[in-house]
Design a protein around this nucleic acid. Structure first.
Lengths: 259, 259
DNA sequence: AGTTGGCGAGAGCACCGCTCTCGGTTGAGA
DNA sequence: TCTCAACCGAGAGCGGTGCTCTCGCCAACT
């Protein structure tokens, strides 16, 4: 109710002040964008309390002062709303991780950058458990992530790869570039990753197939650890979650050749 | 309908053949057990098709030929039914993993035992994706695993620990028992795990804190990798999932000192 | 100025988990 | 052997869900 009034007021004031200029599209288009964002914000707010499976389209409709059917003018289904939330959450996590890395002044201290990025990832996860579950928990049934989610979804791992490759290129990392004896060519199984990251980061990774393999493993370890912690699988095994995660990332850094 | 008849028939035949012997309790108690199991079986069957979040108590009631309210005589809530499914799935997975290990004839070939156990774990996960999501996906909202789930839940990891410790005790493993430089005492953060596994396996692990730490990490890697694969996070990065998983477990074995 | 299309409201459908009541049956004790 | 309490299944019902459809209203374009 209140929302509706404020929305109408905003729309009205826009019409008055801007008139026929239509800077960013017509008033209707602008209102549509605003309301779309408003719904998304309400959904994010609800996600802070209830978890992705329980997110109710009717409830977010009530929050923004609409009847449930009206929301379908903006999101074709609950899944589409969840996808929008997915992208927003991925971006927020990527933003947090990148910011933590950027905050390290000595850009050649790759270990510090690594530890900071990992730490920020965990902190975001702890602070947004429902968002985390949306990103890395069981996907909603029959739900296949659309293509436009892969870019935000890979921000963290791409940054981690950049740190690791940077360390190896600058020579400040010990060599872990040889696969174990008896192993097949790692480059074969992770060829897609090599190609994708090379394109995203504008770096040639053909020389580091083992390193890419190891990085994927480490990526799995980080999110496996966080999932275990958040989903309760470490209860009774780990005393100090923060300390455990730090020790984990420290060993992972060692496995990757970061001093 | 059909189910109801068969259930009544079974009950009837029991009365006729056994009479007053009451070997395993009264006929009513026996029928109760059977119907409870029947509901669980129907739920498992439904879980093969729809995923834990969509498992409908009403639908399983229909499958066993009951009205929905009748199911509540056997399971107090949907969550309680899910808990029963949880335990059953954990046991099935543990069974599969242990069987794969047991099948290795040369009990001193710890690497082979390791690889076989890991491989079996993945195969079970691939064959039972919805059960896997129930076990290792996002927990249902506000759901806290009851105490009687921890025993079946830890069968795989306990077996893995036994293999690793066995290798190190027999001297057929290289030493990875020293923490990296600058790391705090690993024994502090994983003290609970050491105590729990020691009790379960009747082995003293006080001498191997770093090994326990590493084993927990490896555990996270395995299930992180499987979650990534099953939940679609490796799409576009990994070409050959089976090969990737095998290469992963091979490197993990190396990290643990298994030759 | 008239028409088109977007929009919100409302009713409605089929489903869900869960509760309650009401008969019928069972089984243990008097 | 009879009685009565406990158990059990059926049914109705409550409040919730996602989603569809129709119906007016009003802005925007021709």
């Amino acid at each position: 109710m209140q929302e509706r009034c404020s929305r109408l007021l905003r729309l009205l004031s826009f019409c008055v002040t801007v008139g026929h200029m239509t800077v960013a599209g017509t008033a209707r288009e602008r209102a549509r964008k605003e309301i779309t964002a408003e719904i998304l914000a309400a959904a994010r707010a609800q996600l802070r309390q209830v978890g992705p499976g329980e997110l109710s389209l009717r409830a977010v409709a009530r929050d923004v002062g609409m009847v449930s059917s009206a929301v379908y003018r903006y999101y074709a289904s609950r899944d589409e709303l969840l996808t929008a939330l997915l992208i927003a959450a991925y971006d927020e996590l990527g933003e947090a991780a990148e910011a933590a890395d950027d905050a390290i002044e000595d850009r050649t201290d790759h270990l510090a950058r690594w530890m900071a990025t990992c730490k920020a990832t965990r902190e975001w996860a702890i602070e947004h458990p429902h968002d985390y579950a949306l990103l890395y928990g069981s996907p909603v049934p029959g739900y296949a992530a659309p293509q436009d989610t892969v870019m935000p979804a890979t921000r963290v791992i791409v940054r981690l790869v950049e740190i690791i490759i940077g360390a190896h290129r600058s020579g400040s990392a010990s060599a872990t570039t040889t696969p174990p004896t008896g192993a097949a060519d790692p480059g074969a199984v992770v060829a897609d990753a090599i190609a994708y990251i090379a394109e995203r980061s504008q770096t040639d990774l053909e020389a580091f197939p083992e390193l890419v393999m190891r990085t994927l493993m480490v990526w799995s370890t980080i999110f496996g650890t966080l999932s275990f912690e958040l989903f309760g699988h470490l209860k009774g095994s780990v005393n100090d979650f923060e300390g455990y995660f730090e020790q984990t990332t420290l060993r992972l850094a060692g496995d990757l050749g970061l001093a």
